[in-house]
Amino acid sequence: MKLNVSLGVIGVSVLLGVLKMSELLDKAKNYVVEKVTNMPKPEASVTDVDFKGVSREGVDYLAKVSVSNPYSTPIPICEIKYSFKSAGREIASGTIPDPGSLKGSDTTMLDVQVKVPHSILLSLARDIGADWDIDYQLDLSLIIDLPVIGDFTIPLSQKGEIKLPTFSDMWA
């Protein structure tokens, strides 16, 4: 009889110890989540989207992206994904693998080249209309590798108008 009571007391003590350990782990987890949430993170913005050139394959546009790094060490950029839309449909998309890294405690300018095939531009004739421009939406995902956190995606979106090249632009 005494043996059963002793094992019951030990079982309750172990159960209470496990509950206290669980509470301690929950507090530690909440502390880490709060600290990570409040950490400064890199911020980005699209500063310009403009005509770059014409080739046999299509028309090239260049998006300039400004990314600020709040940390003193460089941060590697894993990849940049982009989607270029006009008239409600995607006209170009792609991925730029390993485009470099962000300078420590500085702002880095990234160039994202978008190539739109000529055949797609011809199918957008209604949107181009009399003003000879394309209404566009550029969606970018900058995927960077933050220490401790891991891969972190900065989503960007830019809407605007781009003038199509004229003959003088092509031969200038």
Rank of each mutant, 00 (worst) to 15 (best):
F51D: 06
V5T: 12
D135R: 09
T107I: 13
L146Q: 02
Q137T: 10
R126M: 11
F84L: 08
I91Y: 00
L24T: 00
G150L: 05
G160N: 08
R56A: 03
Q113A: 05
K41C: 05
C78P: 04
V112N: 00
A92E: 02
L25N: 13
V54C: 10
P99Q: 02
I162R: 07
V65D: 07
G104Y: 08
L3S: 15
M109A: 10
V18N: 06
P155E: 02
L122C: 13
Y136E: 07
L62R: 02
K35C: 10
P76H: 05
P165G: 05
K52I: 08
D151T: 10
L16T: 07
A92Y: 00
T47S: 13
K103E: 14
V12S: 08
Q158C: 05
T37G: 06
P147V: 04
D48M: 12
D48V: 02
D133E: 14
K115S: 14
V59T: 09
V32M: 04
D48L: 03
T47K: 12
K163D: 04
A28C: 03
S168A: 06
D133C: 08
T166C: 06
D145I: 15
G94K: 01
V112R: 00
S68R: 15
E57H: 08
F51Y: 11
A44P: 08
K159F: 06
L3W: 10
W132C: 05
S66A: 08
S101G: 13
G53P: 05
Y61R: 04
G160A: 14
S72H: 15
E161H: 11
S141L: 10
S101V: 03
K115D: 03
T73N: 14
S83Q: 04
I144P: 02
I134F: 02
K35D: 07
K85D: 13
G150P: 05
K163S: 08
D139P: 07
F167C: 15
G8K: 09
V9R: 06
V59R: 04
Y82V: 09
N38D: 08
S141Y: 13
Y82N: 05
D169M: 13
K103F: 10
V46L: 03
P165A: 11
Y61P: 05
K115Q: 10
K41L: 07
I154V: 09
A92Q: 02
G100Y: 14
L122W: 15
I80R: 00
D151L: 11
L142N: 10
S6H: 15
S101E: 11
L16A: 01
D169K: 14
I91A: 01
G53W: 00
D111S: 05
V14M: 09
D139E: 14
T107E: 13
I143T: 11
L16Y: 04
A63Y: 00
K2M: 01
A172S: 15
S66E: 11
T107W: 06
L156F: 06
D145P: 03
L164M: 15
F84A: 00
S119D: 11
P99A: 04
K2P: 01
I134Y: 05
Q113H: 08
S66Y: 14
Q137L: 13
T166S: 13
T73P: 00
A92H: 06
E79D: 04
P97E: 11
I91K: 00
I143V: 14
L146A: 10
M170E: 10
M1K: 01
